[in-house]
Amino acid sequence: MTAVPVRRLALLGGGFSIDDDGLLDAWVLGRARASRPRVCFVPTASGDAAGYVERFLAAFAPRACEPSVLPLFRRELDDDALRAFLLSQDVVYVGGGNTANLLAVWRVHGVDRLLCEAYDRGTLLCGISAGANCWAAGSHTDSFGPLTSLPDGLGLLSGSVCPHYDTEPGRRPSYRAAVATGGLPAGWALEDGVGALFTDGVLTEAVTRTPRAHLYRVEPDGLSAARERALPCRLLTEGK
């Protein structure tokens, strides 16, 4: 009897693009299904920024993995090759940038459907900022300038996501207001430094690279307000 693949995705409040210690990236690789995983970086949200790609390759080339990059603004793969490439990956790591643009470009190229298929086949999906927002049904974003709600994600994770909960001015009150008024469903708010792993849609692990960073569950309280609950996070250290 064929085993049903475990479906996993990880929301990241850090990684190679903003951290020097590599702890969250090592944590992600340790959750992959292979000991030497194929890791594809998808920099769509940044417009395939060359510097972002270079930082990814510099961070992951020395690790026990096989890194690659999927550019879409100068796409080279036809539809069949694109599907084969994405479904062969053990980890898909999505970079930050503009969430709305990311989703629009993915849909034009059919990448949204392929990532859903890869997820169902056991590929670990993860990312930071826009790369965390995209997996949920909705997200809190500055894609349009001011902070606002975007109820238009892939829906692989029910509810909503808010990144940069502690570091960007206005994030916390704006997200809480969106959840309180129904602009976004209840969801997950990540402070920078946090990683959250979901298995078949259920939170199964929460970690942090900094002692004071938290993952929050934010829900409406029925009184036109929202309540937040800090969840325990295991502190990451070198080699663990």
Rank of each mutant, 00 (worst) to 15 (best):
Met1Tyr: 14
Val6His: 05
Arg7Cys: 01
Leu11Val: 10
Gly14Met: 07
Gly15Val: 02
Gly15Pro: 00
Ile18Glu: 14
Asp20Trp: 01
Asp21Trp: 01
Gly30Glu: 04
Arg31Leu: 04
Ser35Trp: 12
Ser35Ile: 05
Arg36His: 11
Arg38Tyr: 07
Arg38Pro: 05
Val39His: 11
Cys40Val: 14
Phe41Asn: 14
Val42Met: 13
Val42Arg: 13
Ser46Trp: 04
Gly47Thr: 02
Ala50Met: 15
Phe56Ser: 11
Ala58Arg: 08
Ala64Gln: 14
Ala64Gly: 13
Ala64Lys: 09
Ala64Tyr: 02
Cys65Leu: 01
Cys65Lys: 00
Cys65Ser: 08
Glu66Asp: 15
Ser68Cys: 09
Val69His: 06
Leu70His: 04
Leu70Cys: 10
Pro71Ser: 15
Leu72Glu: 13
Leu72Gln: 13
Glu76Lys: 10
Asp79Ser: 15
Ala81Gln: 15
Ala81His: 13
Ala84Met: 09
Phe85Val: 10
Leu87Lys: 04
Leu87Asp: 12
Gln89Phe: 02
Asp90Leu: 02
Val91Thr: 08
Tyr93Phe: 13
Gly96Trp: 08
Gly97Ile: 06
Gly97Leu: 05
Ala100Cys: 06
Asn101Trp: 14
Leu102Lys: 03
Leu103Ala: 00
Ala104His: 13
Trp106Met: 00
Gly110Phe: 08
Asp112Ser: 03
Leu114Arg: 07
Tyr119Lys: 00
Asp120Met: 02
Arg121Ala: 11
Leu124Thr: 05
Cys126Ile: 05
Ser129Thr: 07
Ser129Ile: 04
Ala130Trp: 10
Ala130Glu: 02
Cys134Lys: 05
Trp135Gly: 03
Ser143Asp: 06
Phe144Ser: 14
Phe144Asn: 09
Gly145Met: 09
Pro146Lys: 07
Pro146Cys: 07
Leu150Trp: 08
Leu150Glu: 12
Asp152Thr: 04
Asp152Gln: 09
Asp152Ala: 13
Gly153Pro: 03
Gly155Met: 02
Ser160Trp: 08
Val161Pro: 03
Val161Lys: 00
Cys162Asp: 13
Pro169Glu: 10
Arg172Ile: 11
Pro173Leu: 07
Pro173Asn: 05
Pro173Glu: 03
Arg176Gln: 14
Ala180Met: 06
Gly183Lys: 05
Gly183Cys: 00
Ala186Cys: 09
Gly187Val: 03
Gly187Trp: 00
Gly187Cys: 08
Gly187Met: 00
Glu191Ser: 04
Glu191Ile: 06
Glu191Val: 03
Gly193Ser: 10
Ala196Phe: 06
Phe198Leu: 06
Phe198Gln: 00
Thr199Arg: 00
Thr199Gly: 01
Val202Gly: 08
Thr204Gly: 11
Thr204Asp: 08
Ala206Arg: 01
Thr210Tyr: 15
His214Gly: 11
Glu219Asn: 04
Glu219Ile: 05
Leu223Val: 14
Leu223Asp: 15
Glu228Asn: 00
Leu231Asn: 11
Arg234Leu: 13
Leu235His: 11
Thr237Trp: 08
